[in-house]
Design a protein around this nucleic acid. Structure first.
Lengths: 104, 104
DNA sequence: TGCATGTATCAAAAATATTTGATACAATGA
DNA sequence: TCATTGTATCAAATATTTTTGATACATGCA
């Protein structure tokens, strides 16, 4: 499948889009994970569950979809897992659209 | 639903993405529709069917999806229908992604 | 080690999306 | 008008995706 289609599919679910928005906006210190956001904004599952009111396996499923599309990077921190947005993939996607469709 | 999600969903099907690519690249004179591409590149159903090997109702379905997402504009020309890509929508989409996710 | 907690995976159910063939509708031209 | 041609729509069949609850796996700590 075309790379662009793959990423569009990942972006095409409201839950996943919201999660990405959360990741892009996350700034404050993560509740339980120590030092998790020292470097860059990110979130752990628990924050996403709480914020969006989703059960754990549902979040897990969508994070996997996002990770497989290259939109987020996962990092284990002890028994937690941190997720970071992958702006490079999104930028590549917009550039691909530009060149595919002759956008200015 | 978020506007960006709506457009991502329209882009997330391989058939639709191919159709959009065809629309963006269409240059030469359209086979049956007189004067259809005087102004801008566009295609009629029959060309899409032929090029991608799809039956008519399938093309019709996907064109409707694309039109409803604002990605193509439809113009009846007699008994034919011409489709034109809507670059403005695509550009808006990339800009939305940029601002939503702080891309450079 | 054993318990508590967080995440991943699985299978089944539910929800959506896509494909198809049949048919309806609209425009053209004889 | 009627026959022809191109497109839209419909309902049914498929296929795909998403959601859920149960369970497995891994980590940290007493």
């Amino acid at each position: 499948m075309l790379d662009a289609v793959r990423i569009a599919k990942a972006l095409s679910d409201p839950v996943r889009y919201q999660i990405l928005l959360m990741l892009a906006r996350s700034q404050k210190e993560c509740c339980p994970v120590p030092g998790a956001r020292d470097q860059r904004p990110g979130l752990c599952n628990c924050e996403i569950m709480a914020e969006l009111g989703l059960i754990q396996s549902r979040v897990s499923y969508h994070m996997k979809e996002l990770a497989e599309a290259g939109l987020v990077t996962e990092e284990p921190r002890g028994k937690w897992k941190m997720y970071y947005i992958n702006q490079k993939t999104l930028t590549g996607f917009t550039q691909l659209l530009k060149s595919d469709f002759n956008l200015k």
